[in-house]
């Protein structure tokens, strides 16, 4: 019964015709292979040809989650952030747009986790910080899909969270027989995102399930826990998840590092708030 429900839901959710309209150029991006030099330039050209999309990508590239001062052109973004990141920003830009407008709390939660993940990754000297930030920005994308595709169920989920005082994924499993992490993974797969992005999305609640990218997944897990501890944004429930021992160990964290991370993060969150306020301000004036 639950399996049936889940498969049914997967069909509904993954029906691309009813997914938020992806810009036409995004389909073209998926046909280009990522490691080919000529396609990097090709890709920059394709993305730049869509002005609205370029603007949205650059806005995200300039968000505090990446920690660059100014990324002014798409080819610049490709160089600084990497092809993978720009491609995922292109793919998810319409979903971010929905989040910015309709669920400011989740948007701020996602931006906050992006910033926290970037901070942790840099502090630990990890490679591919930009990928980690991107995975963190996208980690709860399944929630947006659930809210778009199953708004009735979403209301039920919120009722269950309130009444039973459970985590959002517990309520989701009760109502939908799946959760936002799995839904996010379906989406990531249908977009052909590399598994260094899809694993943190899929397993940010349980890093032990991550096989190839345990470190990146652990960073996103920790960033999510810390942002919920700080109370920044609103991810649907306010309960801080338990820190997984496996994540803590995988990153070789210790008390002193945690103190520094919290300190630096809280300082940065002011900028994140500013960034989010500015976006809402600009949306309000442009209609």
């Amino acid at each position: 019964m639950d399996d049936e429900k889940r498969n049914e839901l997967k069909k509904i959710i993954m029906d691309t015709k009813t997914l938020p309209t992806l810009p036409g150029v995004v389909n073209k991006l998926n046909t280009l292979s990522e490691n080919d030099k000529s396609s990097v330039q090709e890709m920059a050209k394709i993305v730049s040809s869509d002005q609205a999309l370029s603007a949205r990508i650059l806005r995200l590239a300039n968000s505090p989650s990446y920690g660059f001062y100014r990324v002014s052109t798409i080819s610049n973004a490709m160089i600084l952030l990497g092809v993978n990141v720009v491609k995922s920003l292109a793919l998810s830009s319409s979903i971010f747009e929905i989040m910015e407008k309709n669920s400011v709390g989740l948007w701020e939660h996602s931006l906050g986790v992006g910033v926290a993940a970037n901070l942790i990754a840099r502090k630990l000297g990890l490679p591919e910080c930009e990928e980690i930030s991107t995975a963190a920005l996208l980690h709860d994308i399944g929630k947006v899909i659930i809210s778009l595709k199953c708004s009735d169920a979403e209301r039920e989920i919120h009722r269950v969270i309130r009444e039973k005082r459970v985590y959002s994924w517990e309520a989701e499993r009760e109502i939908l027989a799946t959760d936002h992490a799995e839904v996010g993974n379906w989406l990531a797969k249908s977009w052909f995102l590399p598994d260094k992005l899809s694993e943190p999305i899929a397993y940010h609640h349980d890093v032990t399930l991550s096989e190839n990218h345990r470190i990146k997944t652990s960073v996103v897990h920790m960033a999510d826990v810390i942002i919920k501890a700080s109370g920044f944004g609103n991810s649907g429930d306010y309960f801080v998840p338990q820190i997984q021992k496996e994540a803590w160990n995988a990153l070789k964290l210790d008390d002193q590092l945690m103190v520094e991370i919290v300190e630096e993060l809280e300082d940065k969150l002011v900028e994140v708030k500013n960034f989010s306020l500015e976006l809402q301000g600009s949306d309000a004036t442009t209609g």
Binding site: V225, I226, V240, Q242, W248, D255, V259
Partner: peptide, 8 residues
């Protein structure tokens, strides 16, 4: 572990 974060 999570209580460490609480204390911080």
């Amino acid at each position: 572990l999570t209580t460490k974060l609480y204390d911080i």
